[in-house]
Simulated scan of single mutants.
Amino acid sequence: MSVDLKAVRRIAHLARIEVTEAETPHLQSEINAILKFVEALDAVDVDGVEPMTSVIPMRLPMREDVVTDGGIAPLVLANAPVTEDGFFVVPKVIE
């Protein structure tokens, strides 16, 4: 997979990055190099390899799984401009 100059401009636009016409060929080669590297990773056989949380074997600290609301709902709601029955009031966005 490779990207053309039009795709580079679109990516820059979506990322809200200002890119000059002189910079687009360089960025095109950079993006294509990244994509080539990612394609090379697809060739790696990972069958039987378990997911890791770290490169160094370690156990994650465990804690008691207890449901709690934190007891600070009134403090949080104090920051809201409008509340009703203990909830935030927000504008309707879906008809």
Rank of each mutant, 00 (worst) to 15 (best):
V46Q: 14
M62G: 13
V55M: 03
N79K: 10
S2T: 08
E64Q: 10
D4M: 00
F88M: 06
L60Y: 04
E21D: 14
L5S: 08
H13E: 15
G86Q: 09
Q28I: 03
R59G: 09
S29K: 11
I34F: 12
P25T: 04
I11H: 07
T24V: 15
P61S: 11
I94W: 12
P57Q: 02
A15K: 13
L77P: 02
R59V: 03
E95T: 14
V76L: 15
H26G: 11
D69G: 15
L35S: 00
A22F: 09
V46T: 14
K6W: 01
A40V: 03
A22S: 14
I56E: 02
E84T: 05
M62P: 07
I72P: 01
M52C: 05
M1P: 08
G48W: 03
G48H: 00
V49Q: 15
E39S: 12
I11G: 06
D85Y: 07
V76Y: 10
A7P: 05
D69K: 09
F88T: 05
R59P: 01
L14V: 14
G71D: 05
K6G: 10
V19P: 02
E64L: 07
A12I: 00
L27G: 04
T53L: 06
E23I: 02
P61H: 09
K92W: 11
A22D: 12
F37G: 06
P25G: 05
L27M: 07
A22Y: 08
T24L: 14
D65A: 10
P57A: 00
V3A: 04
V38D: 07
V93T: 12
R9E: 11
T53G: 12
A80S: 10
L77A: 04
A7F: 06
V19T: 03
V8K: 00
S2P: 00
M1D: 11
L5P: 02
E84L: 14
E39R: 08
L77T: 00
M1Y: 05
I17Y: 06
L27F: 13
E95K: 14
D4G: 12
E21M: 01
V49P: 06
A40F: 06
S29M: 07
L27S: 03
T53S: 11
I11D: 05
A33S: 13
I56H: 04
I56F: 02
V19I: 04
F37E: 06
E18N: 11
M58D: 03
L60R: 05
D42N: 09
M62T: 15
A7Q: 14
A43Y: 09
K36N: 09
M1Q: 06
K92Y: 08
L27H: 04
D45H: 01
E84M: 13
T53C: 03
E84A: 13
V76C: 09
V93D: 07
E30C: 09
V90Y: 06
F37L: 11
L77R: 01
E95R: 12
M62V: 14
G86P: 04
A33Y: 10
R59K: 13
G70L: 01
E30V: 15
F87C: 13
P57L: 00
L60E: 09
R63P: 06
N79T: 13
T24Y: 04
T53R: 13
E23T: 03
P61D: 13
P25C: 00
V82N: 05
F87G: 04
M62W: 08
I94K: 14
Q28F: 06
V89L: 02
A12D: 02
V90T: 12
V89Q: 01
L27V: 13
R16N: 08
V3K: 06
E84C: 11
L41Q: 13
N79D: 07
V93P: 05
A80R: 02
